[in-house]
Design a protein around this nucleic acid. Structure first.
Length: 897
RNA sequence: GCGCGGGUGGCGGAAUUGGUAGACGCGCCAGACUAAGGAUCUGGUGUCCAUUGCGGACGUGGGGGUUCGACUCCCCCCUCGCGCACCA
């Protein structure tokens, strides 16, 4: 089988230019400290979310964002910016370790192999990364600073009055005890119910639970001593300082929602001599509280439960404990609960109300206890109905809505001193009353929990901490001992011991006579929390980033100018990185408050999956089966029936079967994964890059269509053939179409294209940039000759998108300077001015004529010409012209009836 | 249920202060070049009517409104996707 002839020889010149750029260090970025650094140049820092180098290699989703940033980077570079556009590896993490356990290889080996594969794949796509600045989170030189930053958190506390982190030494100077100080550290140890996965042998952050469950691992609640980071102290700042950022509204909303601020009050109830505090957002409804509910795990449950109810309460608590979160949430919308036998006093009216426990109240939020106002809360209403508890009206709805279960604002009724007040005023009035009588206070709550930071795994940064064998106190390892690496171990499988596999390295743990080592490791997030900064100064052994590099690249308000990545990191990575950045800012290590100024989420690329749909006579789907790769279109039982094709769908005549294509997330299971290497083999890197940008808006979800790749491939071949033609021996030679003649028409089109392309790149609308270059190419194709100066301009416009092809043509035309190092063409506005323009004439808003008129025609003349046009008069004859609207340069609308 | 984002030809999508709806590409149809065309080039392609002339009617999920004029602004509804979900 002979190889299919290529429409242009990308297979030859793409690798050639890649090695040329690498040899010439074309994309090396000079920074502070480099001899060739030019500090007068403005900086532009573009960041891709660095990949986790999995064994599966690159998929087509990776180059989507990377191509977008590459285009912006090349464009900015051509516009005189000193562009930092680096790449690196988020290389710690559970998947690498799971794979290592499965194959018996050390994770360092497999990780390194995966990185080499990823790097080679990326280099085939011609990205202008400065590979000298490559960062790897597992490098000892990197781990050293991850651990150093952790110790910054460990050695600081949150000062409430200044609303910022400060060194822990300030508390020492105040004479606080060790326990008091430890209780305030931003990194602290805490015994709390955590998500323990027995088969992974580690705990997980709340945010990670679903991901690992989805992969088939079990996760259960279990109280354990863990390292936590006090991110909750930053809740308000994480909300407030989000506001000015140039981020998609959806991501901001996701973060706000995750932090989950709610304003309300804490109210103290007396329960048989115990004080139980509840949190409510509706203190105005306190008169309507007819019972109280505690979470089953609430510490006072045992204390207040009456002897008659003890058996029922105990068995209910047992039942709750054995339920997974899933059962407690999704599957159990039906309310359950038990009366404790205790009564509470409503502080506002002295009424006695029963105290229940129920699993719809959660220990983790607020105080783990609520006052129930069934009249005006859906959940309380449902519960009260089920258990026949009293329901009181204390809010009069607006309009004629039923008051039962009415939860919106209204007017207070049956509420003593609140009667007649609006909900908003009643809330404020009640809080004042509570504060005056010391029965409660204004309170703001957040859903955000502190960040569970320790893992019981081998493949992560060890905590640089020691435990005093005598006192049980913890202390940091000396700075000179960083990085603290994992010990070399043959067997790093999880043991089920909640201290993690490092406990088996007995020599390593035994630090000294006095100290033993902490055996936990950090989660994968640790490395990705600060990697963007390390790119600025990747080799620095004295600091995580030099002051000079930080000030040049980092800016004043936010560090990275443009950050592009997937939406899956909306609340985890992006929140954690902001938190660390703020701590480092507070401690004086960074000028900027925020890591990422502008954020763009590239949309998911979907693959095509095929399904058999069986429908009954009324069109309902009765069976829905995935078509496996290689499977025949029709199942055996109807094989002989007549089949009809309409478009892409196959219909079974007289039956109810059809084969449909659906767009689904790419996955091995669907067999619809597109491998970028295959695309590069068949069409070249430029075609892959161009197609990914031409598919549609960057942020949108869009389906992959191989036909579309062929379309842009044809476009690039067309550009190639503007300069080259094939001779008798099937060799490409210069066509001679590129000439020295002048051409006004092409000059105009070329400059229009400059304008469109630069505007499109600035606003990240790459698909329209490409379409305007296609239009320009169509004009060139139609022309006899193309002036060389115009064609060279066009190559510069296309260069950020298709760097190999444009570089090859440029050099073939005798240009010695690399396109990558040239400056962006200057738009000549004077060429865009038209002497004649087209005017649209409407009659009653409907298009009736198009007129060619002089661009400087007066309003009066334009109106006259428009009214005289024969296509217009046929629609105005017999009617009276009531009004004529003239928009100079655009249109005339005649109102007639 | 709450939050966010969408709904435009057969398909992906254009239309950035309200002013020619459907750019560009895919697909499809016809023609040219050819021994041949899955290469390339040219023309056509929203729907319906007329097509022996021009042309005409309808059309951006549905309904209403504002306006000389609405894919675009306002109100109501339908629908799809994503995220959160007993958070008091």
């Amino acid at each position: 089988m002979s190889e299919k002839r290529k429409p242009y020889p990308f297979d030859q010149f793409e690798p050639k230019w890649q090695s040329h750029w690498a040899a010439q260090q074309t994309y090396r970025t000079a920074g502070p400290g480099d001899t060739d650094f030019d500090a007068s140049k403005p900086k532009y820092f573009i960041l891709d979310m660095f990949p986790y180098p999995s064994g599966a290699g690159l998929h087509v989703g990776h180059p989507e964002g990377y191509t977008a940033t590459d285009i912006v980077g090349r464009y900015k570079r051509m516009n005189g910016f000193n562009v930092l556009h680096p790449m690196g590896w988020d290389a710690f993490g559970l998947p690498a370790e799971q794979y290592a356990i499965k194959t018996g290889q050390h994770p360092r080996i497999t990780t390194e192999a995966n990185i080499n594969n990823f790097r080679a794949q990326l280099q085939r796509l011609g990205f202008a990364y400065d590979w000298d600045r490559e960062v790897n989170t597992t490098d000892p030189g990197y781990v050293r600073w991850t651990q150093w930053i952790f110790l910054q958190l460990y050695n600081s506390y949150y000062c409430e009055s200044d609303q910022k982190a400060k060194p822990i030494s300030e508390l020492e100077e105040k004479g606080l005890s060790r326990e008091e100080i430890d209780a305030q550290r931003l990194a602290f140890i805490n015994e709390a119910p955590v998500n323990w996965s027995p088969d992974l042998g580690t705990v997980l952050a709340n945010e990670e639970v679903e991901e690992w469950k989805a992969k088939g691992h079990t996760v259960e609640r279990r109280p354990l001593r863990q390292w936590m980071l006090r991110i909750t102290k930053y809740a308000q700042r994480l909300i407030d300082e989000l506001e000015p950022l140039d981020w998609p509204e959806s991501i901001k909303a996701l973060q706000r929602n995750w932090i989950g601020r709610s304003e309300g009050a804490e109210v103290k109830f007396d329960v048989q001599g115990n004080e139980i505090t509840v949190f409510t957002t509706r203190p105005d409804t306190l008169f309507g509280a007819t019972y109280m509910v505690l979470a089953p795990e609430h510490p006072l449950v045992a204390e207040i439960t009456s002897s008659e109810q003890k058996a029922a309460v105990d068995s209910y608590i047992d039942a709750c404990a054995s339920k997974s979160d899933l059962e407690r949430g999704d599957l159990n919308k039906d309310k359950s609960g038990v009366f404790t036998g205790a009564m509470a006093i409503n502080p506002v009216n002295g009424e006695e109300i029963p105290v229940w426990i129920a699993d719809y109240v959660m220990m983790g939020y607020g105080t783990g206890a609520i006052m129930a106002v069934p009249g005006h809360d859906e959940r309380d209403f449902e519960f009260a109905q089920k258990f026949d508890l009293p329901i009181l009206q204390v809010v009069q709805p607006k309009g004629d809505a039923d008051w039962q279960g009415y939860t919106n604002p209204g007017t207070a009724v049956n509420s003593g001193f609140l009667d007649g007040l609006s909900t908003a005023k009643a809330k404020a009035e009640m809080i004042d009353w509570l504060e005056k009588h010391e029965k409660g206070s204004r309170q703001i709550n957040y859903k955000l929990r502190d960040w569970l930071f320790s893992r019981q795994r081998y493949w992560g940064e060890p905590f640089p901490l020691l435990w005093d064998k005598e006192t049980g106190a913890h202390a940091p390892v000396p700075d000179c001992e960083l990085p603290l690496l994992q010990p070399e171990m043959e067997d790093f499988k999880p043991t089920g011991d909640p201290r993690g596999p490092l406990v088996k390295a007995t020599d390593w743990i035994d630090y000294s006579e006095q100290y033993t080592r902490e055996t936990n490791t950090m989660p994968q997030w640790a490395g990705s929390c600060w990697y963007y900064m390390r790119y600025c100064d990747p080799q620095n052994a004295d600091r995580f980033i030099s002051k000079e590099a930080e000030q040049y690249w980092g800016g004043e308000d936010a560090f990275v100018d443009l950050y592009v990545g997937g939406t899956e990191h909306a609340v985890l990575h992006l929140l954690y990185a902001r938190f660390w950045h703020k701590v480092l800012h507070d401690l004086g290590h960074l000028d900027s408050k925020e890591p990422f100024k502008k954020l763009i989420n590239q949309g998911l690329i979907l693959g095509t999956a095929e399904y058999f749909l069986y429908k009954d006579s009324s069109g309902n789907i009765i069976q829905f089966t995935e078509r496996k790769s290689g499977e025949e279109y029709f199942p055996v039982k109807i094989e002989t029936a007549q089949v009809e094709q309409r478009g892409k769908d196959y219909y079974q005549k007289g039956t109810d079967l059809r084969l449909e294509e659906l767009n689904r997330k790419m996955s091995k299971g669907f067999g619809n994964v597109v491998n970028p290497d295959d695309v590069v083999d068949s069409y070249g890197a430029d075609s892959l890059r161009l197609y990914e940008m031409f598919m549609g808006p960057l942020e949108q979800v869009k389906p992959w269509q191989m036909k579309g790749v062929e379309g842009v491939h044809r476009f690039l071949a067309k550009v190639w053939r503007l300069a080259f033609t094939e001779n008798q021996e099937s060799q490409w030679e210069l066509s001679g179409k590129i000439s020295q003649e002048e051409n006004q028409e092409l000059a105009k089109i070329t400059h229009q294209t400059i304008k469109k392309v630069q505007e499109a790149i600035e606003s990240l609308r790459f698909n329209t940039a490409i379409s305007s270059m296609m239009e320009c190419t169509n004009a060139y194709t139609a022309a006899q000759n193309i002036p060389q100066d115009l064609f060279l301009i066009f190559l510069k416009l296309l260069n950020p998108f298709a760097p190999h092809l444009t570089e090859e043509i440029n050099s073939a035309l005798g240009e010695s300077e690399l396109l990558s190092e040239q400056s962006w063409p200057v738009l000549d506005e004077s060429l865009l001015v038209e002497s004649e323009i087209q005017i649209v004439v409407q009659v009653n808003g409907k298009l009736r004529a198009k007129l060619q008129v002089a661009a400087d025609i007066s309003k009066e003349d334009l109106e006259k010409v428009a009214l005289a046009d024969s296509n217009v008069t046929t629609h105005t004859d017999g009617k009276t012209v009531r009004k004529v609207i003239v928009i100079p340069g655009k249109l005339v609308n005649i109102v007639a009836n």
